[in-house]
């Protein structure tokens, strides 16, 4: 019998992909907040990106499946505070987003309620001459932009 370690559990859970952006993991997006293992019982804490994020139930199911894959017994908890911010997206997550044609978010700003419109780089041609088409895109976390140089329309992960 091999003893399950926290590292095993954490590695399994951290590899769960985001259902709406299946190119990045929940760890890279900062959705995975904590993993603990006490007396063989794992507790995984996740946080929603937006209050109404419809992917939360799918993510919780995937986390439970990941626990089962390493024969870990445990539960998934959801925490609302501290509120998720795009600043928690990891450097590797940002690279993967950009490679998939989704402009990674700029800094979210300390108050969280002030609209910044910093230059966003076109993921296709690299130009910073891009503009917002709509603050609301294909998912709650994205905005629609278009590049003024190459005319490419693209998604931006909007700062939150």
């Amino acid at each position: 019998m091999v003893t399950l370690t926290l590292e095993d559990v954490r590695a399994a859970v951290a590899a769960v992909l985001d259902p709406e952006l299946p190119l990045v993991t929940i760890d890279e997006l900062g959705i995975l907040r904590d993993v603990s293992l006490v007396d063989g019982h794992a507790v995984v804490t996740i946080t929603p990106t937006y209050s109404g994020c419809p992917a939360m139930e799918a993510i919780a199911d995937d986390v439970r499946a990941a626990l089962a894959s390493v024969d870990a017994e445990g539960e998934v908890r959801t925490a609302l505070a501290p509120a998720w911010t795009t600043d928690w997206i990891s450097p590797s997550g940002r690279v993967k987003l950009a490679e998939a044609g989704i402009a990674p978010p700029g800094p979210a700003g300390s108050s969280g309620t002030v609209m910044l419109d910093l230059a966003v780089r076109c993921p296709r041609c690299g130009s910073t001459a891009t503009r917002v088409v709509s603050r609301f895109g294909s998912t709650a976390c994205k905005a629609l932009r278009v590049c003024s140089d190459c005319a490419e329309p693209f998604d931006e992960f909007k700062p939150l």
């Binding site: 937006y50 505070a81 501290p82 509120a83 969280g112 309620t113 603050r135 609301f136 709650a140 909007k158």
Partner: peptide, 15 residues
């Protein structure tokens, strides 16, 4: 709980 709801919601409502 109210503080947590507000902390998330205020960022969404700013948009």
């Amino acid at each position: 709980t109210l503080a947590a709801v507000a902390g998330k919601a205020v960022k969404e409502v700013a948009y």
